[in-house]
Design a binder for these strands. Structure first.
Lengths: 129, 129
DNA sequence: ATAAACTCTATAGTTGCTATAGGGTCAAGC
DNA sequence: GCTTGACCCTATAGCAACTATAGAGTTTAT
């Protein structure tokens, strides 16, 4: 199939597919006589692997690492474990930060009722440290 | 004071200060004979305002809006209310997403014990949709 | 043959910084 | 006065992960 079809099937944009190829996340596809990229089922599977990893906020560089490991089945998977554990830490950390941010925003929200002027706005007073 | 001192006092890097000035978040400072930027207490306050907004994940463009509103004290602050409410929505949304991501990562973490091969790695099997 | 849809490569842009290059200024010490 | 190191300047590029656009070539259906 051509790139437009792959994009439809995978839910990944044409430009992103080309980007992933350029970044080494997708294998170079064969080409038609007119130089159009041609993809098979294996390419679709690889793209879906990449997409799945992205949905986990895994950076592209790490995804490349995972793909390389995938090609080395006899190797230890301890680095995969580390990667996922690290990702989980990052997520936990970010959730913590966002909760704190949420608290502050909620306090600010209450600091001002509508139909005020900027001068008397409780939110603005809070921002003005 | 010069930019290095402002950076120290504010906790904001020199380059970021210059960046904020370029983006219109900070007023153009006066200059010394040697063309060094010179800042007063007012500039420090403005920078701290910007920093505070950034700590709330408010985009620079919105911060500019807030600064403009600050200069119009008689105007309605309803847009400030909207901005904070919107920010809160975004934060809530992101927390939700991260919690879902966390769940998935936790499941994956359990899918593999250490000292496996890639071939038998439960995490890799999960990624391989 | 024609036109529209699809595809190509190259490049620029988004956001919010951050680093670097090459050069100028200032202040302290000799 | 000279030197040196700290500080400052502008310009530009880079980061991550896309996303858009320009200009041109290919394919497909009528």
């Amino acid at each position: 199939m051509k790139i437009g079809q792959l994009a439809k099937v995978s839910g990944c944009s044409i430009q992103t597919i080309r980007y992933y190829e350029k970044e080494g996340l997708l294998s170079l596809p064969s080409r038609s006589e007119g130089n159009f990229r041609l993809y098979d089922e294996k390419a679709l599977k690889q793209l879906e692997f990449v997409k799945h990893c992205r949905s986990l906020d895994i950076p592209l560089l790490d995804i490349k690492t995972l793909l390389e490991l995938k090609n080395r089945p006899e190797e230890s998977c301890s680095s995969i474990n580390s990667l996922i554990a690290n990702q989980l830490d990052l997520v936990n950390q970010r959730i913590k930060e966002l909760k704190e941010l949420k608290s502050e925003l909620q306090i600010m929200k209450k600091a001002c009722s509508s139909d005020n002027t900027v001068e008397r706005c409780g939110i603005m007073k809070t921002l003005d440290v």
